[in-house]
Each structure stands twice: as C-alpha cells, then as structure tokens.
Design a binder for these strands. Structure first.
Lengths: 389, 389
DNA sequence: GTGAAAGCGCTAACAC
DNA sequence: GTGTTAGCGCTTTCAC
C-alpha cells in the first residue's frame, strides 16, 4: 500500500478501514471512540505521517482560534510590555496571535484590509493605535470583535490609563517640591505617523496642574520632538542652556526622561540638586536609573485587553466598556526640592559630576559664560550654583 | 432581493449575474475582467457587504501566507530587536506573522504541536530558541520550512553571531587594558527553562582568551544567575566585596552589565577608574549609559532570518547554510586601563560619586573596612583610591 | 473575457 | 460507537 505524499483524513480512514468521522474524533481528542479503534487509527496516522490541515479544520469549523494585535513601536519598552502581557494571556487561552506593527496610516490601512477579511482573525486588540470611526466601522462590518488598550476608541471596549491625571500627578509632584519653572518634553507627531495621543494628554495634565497652581504657562519650556532618549536629550539641552532654565523637567515617557538625565549630566546640572526630572510609565530600567516616574501597569494593561477580547469571543459582553487602570507616583532619586528651599537632597546617579567625554560633541554648544563641560565637579550640597560648579 | 447575513462569493456571483470565477478575479486584482463587468461586480460586493474568506481562499490555494516566529523573553531588548527586524521584513513581504513566546520546554512542545500541523504556518523562524533534532524532525515531517536566528540548529539555515569570538573580544579588550582579574557574570539556566546558549558561549570565549593570556582561571570570579540587571547587580556586589575583587567585569549581556554598573556605584567602585565593565549586544540604552560592549546587529539578524525564510518559501535554496554576522568591539567610557598602570581614565556616568540612597539597602552589606556609601565623592583623577574617595 | 465544475481537507449532523 | 454525507467558501483549470 503506497503512502500518498500528503495523506488526508480520507486516506487515513481508508487505510484504517474506518469512516472519516472516526478519524476526526481520534484527531480531536478521541472521545466516543472505542479504545481499540483509536489505537488502530493512531497507528495508521503515524504510519502514513498524516498531519491534519489547520485550514480545512478552521474553515469547516468557521473559526481559526487566531487573534491579531496591532501595536506600534517595538522600540518602545511600554509597547513591548503591553504586547507581552497580551501574548501571555492569549497563549494561555490557546489562541495564536498575529502581531502587526502599525506606526503609519499606510500600515494601518494595510493591516486593516487584511484583518477585516472574513476568517482571518477571530478578534483584534489595538494597542495604543488610534482608530478612527471608519476603522471601527470596518471591523464592525466584518463582524470582527475588537478591544482597545491605551487608546480611546468610540464604542469599543477599552483599557486605558488616565494620562491627563498622570500628567497632573507628575507636575503636581514637582510643584509640591517647590518648583515653579517646570519644563515639558514630549512627542512631536510627524505627518507620516499616526496621531498617538499619550504624550499630548500628559502634557494637557501638566498644563492643567500648572494652571491650578496659578503658574503662567511658558511655551518656551515646552519642547516636542522625536520619541527617543537622544532627541529628548537634545531638547533638554535647549532648555538647560536657556538664560533662565527650568528647575524641573517632566518628560512624557521614561525613555525621554533618560535623555533628559543625560542632558543634565552633560550640561552640568546635578540631579536632583539643580534639576528634578520625572518621567512616565515606570519601565524596567527606570528603577535602575532611580528615575522618579508615574507608574502604570503596562503588562497588565495588555493582559486585560486580551482577557476582555477572550470574553468577547466567548460570546459574553465585557463589563465596564471603559476600564481605567490606576496610575501611581513613584518617587525616586531624580526629583527633589527646589534648590534654596529645603536643600540637602540626595544625589541622582547620572548627574553627580561625570563630565563630558571628549569624543562626544555637546549637542547644544555651551552657552557663553558657562564653564567647559569637562572641568566641572558637582557637589551635591551646593545651592544656587550655576552650571554645576 | 434580500441580503444574506454573510454573503459568499456565490451570492455575489448570482446577484451580479456572473460566474464565481469572475468574482474571484475581481477580488484578486481584477485582471482579465472587462472594466464594465468589474465595476458591476464591485458594486454588488459593496452592496452586499461581501468579505472574502481568508480560510477558504487559503485552503483552496493551499497556503495562507502566514509564518510563525518563535522567540523567548520579550523582556530582553535583544530578543525584541530581533523580532522587530523579522516582523518588518515579513510585513514588507506581505506575510502575516504569528508570534510565539517560547521560554520553557513545555511552551516549545505546545507551539511545536501547533506549528507542525499542516497549513498553519508556511514557515517558521526560531529566534534564540534551542531546537533539538526531534524538533527539526517534526518540522521536516510536516514539510514546514524553518530557519534559525541566534541559535545553532543542525541542518537548518541559520543566522548567528560568533558568541565565543565575542567573548574573546570582550575579555581581550580588558586584558589589553592591563586587567588580570576579570570577573564574568552570566546566565544560570534553570531546569524549567530551555537551554539558551549565548551566555555559555560568551563565557567560553572569556575563558579561552584568559587561557591564551596565560591567566589562571579563577572560578570564584565567575557568577551565574538570572538574566536581569537586579540579579547581575547582586552577583557583582558579591564580586566587589571579595577580599581581592576583580578590576574588570565582563557581563554576558548589556542588561546584566547595567546591573554591574549599579553595583559598582553602590559598592563605591568608580567606573572605569576602579572597575571596568563591558557588556554584550549593544542594545539601545548602552550608548546612553556609555557602556563598552560587543556590538552585534540585532535587528539585522532578525531581518536576515526573515529574508532567508522568504527565500525558502519562494522555492529557492538559501546560500550559506550558516550565516555569521559580524561582531564588533565598541569602546565607551565604562572600560579603562587598570588603575596604577596608565591612569587618567575618563569617568563613567554611573560611578562618579553618587552615593547610595537611604531607603535602598545595599544588597551585599558593605565590607569591613570600607567607608559607608553615602560619604563618598569620587574624583576622577584619583588613583589607587579605595571606595571612590 | 467569462461560466461551470472539480477540488482543497475537514467538521458536524444524522442515521444506523 | 461508527459510517455517510453535506457543507465550509474559495481557486483554478478548462471549455467556450
């Protein structure tokens, strides 16, 4: 008896002398099959090297137990953490997961077209990706359930954090330390990108908090640029080389805050003695760098989104359509009281005197009247000193 | 004319008064269809809200244009970078990608079972995941093409870096700076985990290089633990509180090197004045922290793996079965000459005098005879000083 | 250019 | 328990 190159279930049935139904039962757990029959069929399966076809099974069943997740920027720790949280739940629930990187409108359209097709994904999780009504409508027309994480999408179950409140929390923390001139560094969204909103919302919270504190908003203290430590460092350098630099900087993300720390070190601002820095997200390396920040449960948000999608797929309704995850201020060593107020703050790692390195050109040339970068040695207890001397 | 809940291609054909073949052609690019016919069919498609079935199309065609990627540890920047590189190429080639997180033997078996099924994945990329012969055989039996990235798998096209050579490069760099007592911090693989090999290979390079330099291998200078900055910091503290601590430490990854930097700072070892630190991978934050390291093209390796898989899927053979990507020593500020040899090294960020913070207990208590952490202020030009004073 | 029809390989309902 | 069969929804010859 010759073995077909790619035996099908029918081949197995024939070879085992049983009907296809029996083979199907054996393949799918073997319930309602006599033990001896099961063994015989399994032997044939083994002998023929039979592999069931996922496609045929899924088509017949009408579902493939596959979900898709839209996520931007694998370069950002926060995105990755959310993705990881979702993947872990999905794997646990025995769903396979298609990951789609979505950063530009073009990519969104592309993946939308693929995912709104019938039978491609049982459901979709949109992480941080801003979906318009037309996108939601497309999924609805395709009867593809969708949930959102870290992004507000009308009419869709969503798991978010209060970015505005978080911005207030950060600014409020700095205000409570006596700071009045507080800089903000956030994302500048280019035309090619999708309009990701968290930076903007966090800035809104910052402005709101400043207003509550009766502090005049100074647009010169706000700098927007690419979402990277390097870009943030450049922007922070601009702030720190102003005639009247801020005494604190709120960065819209920890990644950017790290750039600020770097800039502070380069420009000779001891942290937190001369400059307080706070970030947002509480990614893993923030603890390592002792960065004060706004903590949000990143992995958990992805996991929650996945769970809610599973609920939807199981045919249930999800309970609160808008789920808000808690935010929390994490005070570490990068923020401290305004110099000259209570003094004696603990020093931060990155700013305690390491000078510039020769091969690195300072990104913003040293301002007139400021010492060259490589001759400074900061003392933590110094007050009202300029330039870190 | 009533509209079926989920119209099929047959419904469209009937409503448009054409055959199914025509509708199929229209849906798939509309070649060989008269303009007027195409319009008519498209109108019906729109009116009925027809969505093609991916499953049916794929089953009929015999392929789903979907690949799977096995990757461990989304918590590791290196894994994520490789994943990102692969996803980007795959999206470009219009493949959808199923991402499977694989960290334990159980997860590997699970995903293996799912992916060796017929018609699930057109091909598979294994990133860093150690596959045994039995796994390769399973994919072969299922006729599922597979390529490996950052892992050696017998008989499978693979894209790797010379980890052993990289370890030699790192150790050699430290040796060339005059260091003789060189510590190593690497991964301890638990029984529950898959036997990931890079740390071990890098250590092999380290030992090999030491041997070449006629330096006796001291097992006390080798510490293995969990792959995290925190665990590495703990291990580094152990090394630094020895009676005769190493003057340099090679960490098997940048993440671990960051833990070492942190430990150095806590234990009062100025970097690189008193301790040189080198990592491996050159992840993004390494530049920010000015960490010397061994650079390897992470994203590129993922991209190459993806390209090679695509080549395989296109029916071609891949050229060199074993593709080796170049490794490169990146000298930054965390490594310097052995104290007392040439002196005058540039200071490293994390070690220039920031003291411990009160609420953080030092992980390994300060050794007898060493100053308390919070009273030190390091001067860069100092030599032979202990504790950073 | 277009229509008809034979698969693709399985699941599930139903009869025995 | 087990066999039979009708779909699942599309692609792709092949004839016209």
């Amino acid at each position: 008896m010759r073995i077909p190159a790619r035996p099908t279930m029918a081949d197995v049935a024939a070879a085992a002398g049983v009907g296809m139904g029996t083979v199907s039962r054996v393949v799918n757990g073997g319930v309602n099959v006599r033990e001896s029959t099961r063994r015989r069929v399994e032997a044939v399966i083994e002998r023929l090297g039979y592999r069931p076809s996922h496609l045929a099974a899924a088509l017949s069943r009408g579902t493939s137990r596959t979900v898709a997740i839209l996520v931007p920027y694998l370069t950002r720790p926060a995105s990755v953490a959310r993705l990881a949280g979702a993947l872990s739940v999905l794997a646990e629930q025995r769903y396979q997961t298609i990951v789609c990187i979505v950063e530009t409108p073009g990519q969104l359209d592309h993946h939308l077209a693929e995912l709104t097709v019938r039978h491609r994904a049982d459901g979709v999780i949109a992480v941080s990706v801003p979906l318009g009504e037309e996108h939601v409508a497309a999924f609805r027309r395709g009867s593809v359930p969708i949930v959102a994480v870290d992004t507000v999408v009308a009419g869709v179950p969503q798991t978010t954090a209060r970015d505005v409140a978080g911005g207030q929390l950060a600014a409020g923390h700095l205000l409570s330390l006596g700071h009045q001139r507080i800089g903000f560094i956030g994302d500048l969204i280019s035309k090619q990108e999708l309009p990701f909103t968290s930076s903007k919302l966090r800035m809104r919270g910052y402005r709101r908090e400043l207003t509550s504190a009766q502090i005049r908003f100074d647009p010169r203290l706000v700098r927007l640029g690419a979402h990277s430590a390097a870009a943030a460092a450049e922007l922070a350098s601009q702030l720190l080389t102003m005639r009247d630099p801020p005494t604190a900087i709120f960065a819209a993300s920890d990644t950017q805050a790290m750039g600020v720390l770097r800039a502070a070190e380069r420009c000779g601002f001891a942290v937190p003695a001369m400059l307080s820095v706070i970030g947002f997200d509480d990614i893993e390396s923030s603890a390592l760098l002792d960065l004060s920040t706004i903590h949000q449960p990143l992995e958990h948000s992805g996991a929650e989104g996945a769970r809610r999608l599973c609920t939807l797929l199981a045919g249930s309704r999800v309970r609160p359509l808008r789920q808000q995850l808690p935010l929390r201020l994490v005070k570490r060593a990068s923020t401290g009281p305004l110099p000259g107020r209570s003094g004696g703050s603990r020093p931060h790692l990155l700013s305690a005197g390491a000078g510039g390195r020769a091969r690195e050109r300072s990104q913003a040339g040293p301002p007139a009247g400021r010492r060259p970068l490589d001759t400074r040695f900061t003392r933590h207890s110094s007050r009202h000193v300029e330039g870190g001397m």
